[in-house]
């Protein structure tokens, strides 16, 4: 057997460095996700408004986000902001901005459909029992909405994690970049490093995303029964 390429992972602290790299994109995902959840809740409630104009703008925002690839949005913010607003955004900031912009729309739509899936009689019974509008939301609607929301929120989180892998294309030093550094550093000693490094990154992403999507599937099933 020839010189095993897998050893590249255990040389020095390579493996640790890869995890640190992954942590960078995970951090971006978690930050954007928290913003998206907060803003998305608000946006979702706005979306249920009966005002035609409000609905139109919500729709426009949602469709814009849905139609533009996230990478295009990233480019727009990363290159566009530097030129027009004269602010030099770091890749990370641009990524958080874009992913929050995207996540808020997606989250908002989830919140909207969860809110709409709650039968009208729930509201009416609340009012009949003498709850105010806030009381109905606080005690009746929101608790039920969150239960229904959890699985799709987790799915959104895995999508967010997967999408943050794009940040390497706007120059953030994350797991793929670290992987490239490792490959380049050992170009002559371990020629087949690329296979192992990219293979491990592949597995790492899987290891992070799988528990969430599994949990989402289980929760979904539990809700259905």
């Amino acid at each position: 057997m020839q010189n095993l390429g897998i050893q590249i992972l255990f040389q020095g602290n390579n493996f640790l460095r890869l995890w640190e790299g992954l942590w960078v994109s995970l951090k971006l995902a978690v930050i954007s996700m928290s913003f998206s959840i907060c803003l998305g809740m608000l946006f979702g409630m706005v979306m249920t408004s009966t005002n035609k104009l409000v609905r139109f703008f919500c729709r426009l925002y949602l469709e814009t986000v849905r139609i533009m690839p996230q990478l295009v949005l990233l480019f727009l913010v990363y290159f566009g902001a530097a030129k027009h607003l004269n602010v030099n955004l770091s890749g990370g900031t641009a990524a958080v901005l874009v992913f929050t912009f995207w996540g808020t729309a997606e989250m908002g739509d989830l919140v909207r459909s969860a809110l709409e899936s709650i039968p009208v009689h729930q509201y009416q019974s609340g009012y009949a029992l003498g709850f105010g509008k806030i009381g109905v939301y606080r005690h009746i609607i929101i608790p039920q909405t969150i239960r229904r929301l959890l699985p799709s929120m987790m799915n959104l989180l895995t999508r967010m994690v997967k999408t943050t892998s794009l940040v390497v294309l706007i120059g953030v030093i994350e797991v793929v970049k670290v992987g490239k550094q490792i490959i380049d550093a050992s170009r002559y000693t371990v020629p087949d490093a690329a296979l192992w490094v990219y293979g491990v990154i592949f597995i790492m992403y899987f290891a992070v995303c799988y528990p969430f999507s599994r949990a989402a599937a289980l929760l979904d099933k539990k809700l259905r029964d």
Binding site: G5, T158, K162, T163, S165, L166, V168, L169, V176, I183, P191, D192, A193, A194, L195, W196, V197, Y198, G199, I201, F202, Y205, F206, C209, Y210, S213
Partner: peptide, 23 residues
């Protein structure tokens, strides 16, 4: 299905494009 749904396309491409030529 689980593998393909839980990994980003970008990483899949990197593996295909840079990784596989090594074997």
């Amino acid at each position: 299905i689980e593998i393909s749904r839980n990994t980003p396309l970008l990483i899949q491409l990197f593996f295909l494009y840079f990784g596989l030529p090594k074997i």
